[in-house]
Nucleic acid binder design. Structure first.
Length: 829
DNA sequence: AGCACGCCGACT
DNA sequence: GTCGGCGTGCTC
């Protein structure tokens, strides 16, 4: 019986984002499985490309011509059927391509390179040397050049290496047609796996000297050293040997040539103990923690269990709960995934897991190279890594028996991807939990409003932890009204109250954390006379002033320019920086408190590898009294000597033009406050704001999450925001402003037309087209249309957007504009 | 997208 | 008739 395979072809465009049907050749019928990686001829030139088998069928659904699969690329399928389902689900949910999803869940451990080659045609090969020479001499000069190059390259040359010849494609075409050369595609399948080389002697220790003598082998002193070393050390890694003995690779290969040693290649990852033994440590868990652990572990093998949401105040010991749950799972033979918001910011968490569980803890994040990712995947498949800590992409790790997924600080925006596929790790985790019966645990001190609403609707089992693990109360938050500070003549960024508390903390040898949501020195530079504001040349963004080298820097594209003394517009010298950034805080702090030691933690000081750890260690070792930082500070840092937290301006986040800004304010205030008083010392928080009456501030200072939730959910309901509606953002961008605008309008008109055809005449759920809040990034103008699934079924809405933006893309949009679809985006800038 | 192919004008 | 360049349309 005939067999056919429906495959997804590796080609990075939406135009080929379909399932293609290929005939399965006779010799592969037995072997080929769904999830296999195969090689198929694609396009008119039958270019060999990598493809992924999604389905195997034994009849053709319609009368289409098919080509045959060339070969299967790996012994085993790389995807299980549940992973294929996940790809299909994500593609549909986030309106992205198959390949976007495949790239996400399968690190490119293998690289398939294809290239076109030219060889002498079979006809010419039949000629003898003199005939050939005569034939060539009569050819066009350019033809001769090509043949020369082919012969120089041992009868075969890559077409891409001939590109320096003008009009080469035409020349090759004609030579091909005239049967002078033949053109065809070749490929190479690279395995991108890291291997380690081990050395060992080929014979017993005693025999070796005799063998050397008997065969009269000359050994250099270095070579003798290696042999002696190997007598006493078994299985030496080649790099170690080279380093310890200070020998070159040449000496080692030469010993190998003399058949005295063997070289053995093995997979890169270390061999940790693969059998897990629980290292019992007395941990004092409080009743609430124990309840949470019991609840989750007792239901681990229940079918159709709901996901859990742990709402625990800052410092409530959620990590201990996670670790106990994971420990239980391990003892039951189940593996775990722990998602953290940003791997770089959580060295403390990783340390805690490694201390407790040892070598079976793996780390995974997007900054790893493709090869490194592949190594981690292999270790997971081999059962050598059983707990994986990572950013959102760690969710797709190929565990054989996954039992637990934990998402820590799940309210963080980093769980939503900004690039294709623009997935939400929480949504995907829920999908996976449902399909695989995994225990999913979301934890946060400040749950996002939409998920908490769902918890109240019984989609989650809500577990509350209301007391801190150290039994200390949460630090008191004191509000300072900055309007009054101005009235009493304090123009400084620091209120008198905050200054007083800083003094007090330093006197008592305690530490201080100051939080400000903006890096740099000043938020913008402008001319006091004419109001000119320095802007980025590439983006619609004002430049942030960085005092050290007197430049304005764009925080979107990195553009920098020197700030002149005179206004480029009116020529006046009243050019001044406005607003405050972390740099300015540092400067002003040093003005007020002489001899104070300050550390600054923001994107500017932590961009170098290892610099974050350095800053954290310095602060931990009390080398500085004050740590100034941005958002980064809110993410789970634990310093026992911090007694004072200063929030310098809560308004900055509050006034952000986004519907989630109140939620973000509440979360940041709560999280940052939670950094104080984490050990035996009690903490205090000073919060400075101009808007003392705002409910986000009032609720936050009382740690009243429920109250904030009640206030906020009413507003969300009235305006139809999440969780009551989904929001879909379509951004059209391009270098030509008019074209972008026109295309946005074109899309709007097409959508309206389709909706009217379906009898829908109320378009209030569509906003736009409008220029984006940030109307230009990197020389690209941006227009936006926003949709809410108000009065329209989400799948109908998505179907229409998909039809316009993907299926009919070429008709609706110019090829020079870029169309980006985001389902429930983090922000709508 | 990326590739092959076909059409057309220029030039010998 | 040949060369060089560009526009077009399809991909199992």
């Amino acid at each position: 019986m005939d067999r056919y395979a429906k495959v997804v072809v590796r080609s990075n465009t939406v135009h080929t984002d379909n399932l293609f049907t290929y005939k399965v050749p006779e010799f592969l019928i037995e072997e080929l499985k769904e999830g296999h990686r195969v090689l198929v001829p694609f396009g008119r030139g039958n270019k060999p490309v990598e493809a992924f088998v999604f389905e195997i069928i034994n009849y053709l659904e319609e009368d289409i011509k098919t080509k045959e699969i060339v070969d299967v690329l790996d012994e085993e399928p790389i995807f299980r059927s549940e992973e294929l389902d996940l790809v299909k689900w994500m593609k549909n949910r986030y309106l992205c391509t198959y390949i976007d999803c495949i790239n996400l869940i399968y690190p490119k451990g293998y690289k398939l390179n294809n290239y076109k080659v030219a060889t002498i045609s079979d006809d010419l090969k039949k000629l003898n040397d003199t005939q050939l020479k005569e034939f060539i001499i009569n050819l066009d000069e350019k033809y001769q050049q090509v043949i020369e190059l082919i012969e120089k390259n041992k009868g075969k040359v890559k077409v891409e290496k001939l590109k320096f010849i003008p009009n080469i494609n035409n020349i090759l075409d004609r030579m091909n047609k005239n049967n002078i050369i033949s053109l065809h595609w070749e490929y190479k399948d690279h395995k991108n796996e890291k291997k380690v080389c081990y050395l060992a002697l080929t014979m017993e220790d005693e025999e070796i000297d005799e063998y050397v003598k008997a065969n009269k082998i000359n050994l250099g002193s270095k070579q003798k050293e290696i042999i002696n070393f190997l007598k006493y050390n078994k299985d030496v890694e080649i790099n170690d040997a080279m380093e310890i003995l200070n020998v070159s690779k040449k000496s080692i290969t030469s010993l190998h040539d003399k058949k005295l040693i063997t070289l053995r290649l093995e997979d890169y990852y270390r061999n940790p103990e693969s059998i897990y033994t629980s290292s019992y440590k007395e941990i004092n868990l409080n009743e609430e923690q124990r309840y949470a652990i019991n609840k989750i572990t007792s239901e681990m093998f229940d079918e159709n269990k709901k996901p859990y949401m742990i709402h625990g105040v800052t410092g409530s010991g959620k990590t201990e709960v996670y670790m106990e749950v994971i420990d239980y799972a391990l003892n039951q033979g189940l593996d775990s995934i722990v998602l953290v918001p940003e791997i770089a910011l959580t060295p403390q968490t990783i340390d805690r897991f490694k201390n407790r569980f040892g070598d079976i803890v793996g780390v995974f994040h997007s900054q790893l190279s493709e090869g490194q990712k592949h190594d981690v995947y292999k270790a997971i498949k081999a059962g050598k890594v059983r707990i994986l800590i990572g950013a959102r992409s760690a969710l797709f790790a190929p565990f054989n028996s996954l039992g637990v997924i934990i998402i820590d600080e799940f309210h963080e925006t980093s769980y939503k991807s900004e690039k294709n596929p623009k997935f939400s790790a929480i949504e995907v985790a829920k999908y996976m939990a449902l399909k695989k019966d995994v225990s999913l645990v979301l934890g946060s001190a400040t749950p996002s409003i939409d998920e908490y609403y769902k918890a109240k609707q019984d989609e989650y089992k809500l577990i509350e932890i209301k007391s801190r693990a150290n039994k200390k109360p949460l630090p008191k938050i004191e509000v300072v009204d900055m309007k009054n500070e101005l009235n009493v003549g304090n123009k400084s960024i620091f209120s008198f109250r905050l200054q007083q508390e800083i003094k007090e903390a330093i006197k008592n040898k305690n530490q201080v954390i100051l939080f400000l949501n903006r890096r740099g020195y000043a938020s913008f530079v402008s001319c006091r006379k004419c109001g000119y504001v320095f802007q980025c040349d590439n983006c619609d963004i004002s430049l942030t002033y960085h005092k050290r080298n007197n430049v304005g820097r764009c925080h979107y594209c990195g553009y920098e320019k020197e700030i002149p003394k005179e206004c480029p517009d009116c020529g006046s010298t009243y050019v001044k920086p406005f607003g405050v950034g972390t740099q300015k805080i540092e400067e002003e702090l040093k003005d007020i408190f002489e001899d104070i030691k300050v550390l600054r933690m923001d994107k500017d000081t932590t961009s170098k590898k290892g610099s974050l750890e350095e800053i954290l260690n310095k602060f931990k070792n009390q080398e500085a009294q004050v740590l100034i930082g941005t958002q980064m500070l809110s993410k789970g840092l634990d310093f026992e000597n911090v007694t004072l937290v200063g929030i310098l301006s809560a308004d900055m986040i509050l006034n952000f033009p986004d519907f989630k800004s109140f939620e973000t304010t509440f979360q940041l205030v709560t999280q940052v406050s939670g950094r104080a008083g984490r050990s035996d010392k009690e903490g205090i928080v000073i919060l400075q704001t101009y808007d003392t009456d705002h409910y986000a501030i009032r609720r936050a200072i009382n740690y009243d999450y429920e109250g904030f939730f009640d206030d906020e959910i009413k507003i969300r309901k009235v305006f139809g925001y999440a969780p009551f509606n989904n929001m879909i953002s379509v951004v059209i961008s391009g270098a030509n402003e008019n074209l972008v605008k026109q295309n946005a309008q074109n899309m709007y008109d097409s959508i309206i037309y389709l909706l009217q055809n379906r009898g829908i005449n109320n378009f209030e759920f569509i906003l736009g087209p409008n220029p984006c809040s940030i109307s230009k990034i990197n020389q690209n103008y941006r227009w936006q249309i926003l949709f809410k699934d108000d009065n329209i079924e989400i799948n109908l809405l998505k179907g229409i957007i998909k039809y316009i933006c993907i299926t009919k893309r070429d008709v609706v949009f110019n090829k020079d504009v870029n169309v980006s679809i985001d389902i429930n985006p983090n922000n709508v800038l």
